[in-house]
Amino acid sequence: MRAIRIFAVLVLVFLVSPIVVIFPLSFSSGEVLTLPTPGWSLRWYEDFFYSSRWLEATKNSFIVGTITMVLATALGTFAALGLNMAQFRGKKLVLAILSLPMVVPVIVAASSMYVAFSAMGLTNSLTGLIIAHTIVAAPYVVITVLASVQTLDMTLVRAALSLGATPAQAFREVVLPLILPGVIAGAVFAFATSFDELVIAIFLTGPDQFTLPRQMFAGLREMLSPTIAAAAVIMITLSLVLLVITESARVYATRLNKPNRQQDAR
């Protein structure tokens, strides 16, 4: 048993070590990415924040990520609510189509979208990338919102309606606050999906539309500069912020559901 515990701890170390190691490397004063570092400096971060290519890529990533998040969250939330309300034949098929981007290999999606989007003049443009990212990200919103809608107690809605609320009011005052954790989780996931996405970006963007991952990929294939380590740390930090947001949303959701359960128990 003790051996297994030690083994498991080693696996956990294996999981975090590459992420931990990259931090000191990015603060190195040397030209070569190795440990121990010859000294400490912020020169690679300076390099990042003074380089128009990296800044442009960061800006593009935030533009694409934010618009994708808004579109995917809106479309995904509507679709999840619709799926919860409607009873019709072929509902299963619709759900299968909406979750296709989660199972189709990204490379197949990227290659197919490249051919189709270039026929529509949507390659080498941020618009095309936003559309593609929205398609890839929306299914996650559908899944997370659907999960929180399904736990929604419909008697609460009926109560609101019987007490004189209009359907719009009932939605805004009762439904929305209760599904909000799901919507937030979906939105964060949509943003993260777009912000981290590389394969589709490789196919759909030219140098003028490079996103942060695309710029990193290009940098890795040209010459390994420590600026890439700095960029990686910046992306890791953002991922951790997003992780904290989703975890907070989850905690908020469990708190939200707790009073109901306690009342049920009584």
């Binding site: 479309l75 679709a79 609510l81 409607a86 189509i97």
Partner: peptide
């Protein structure tokens, strides 16, 4: 009917 109307935009895009 309302539900289908809500699903339609994403389904169409997909």
């Amino acid at each position: 009917r309302l539900g289908i109307l809500l699903i339609a935009p994403l389904l169409l895009l997909m």
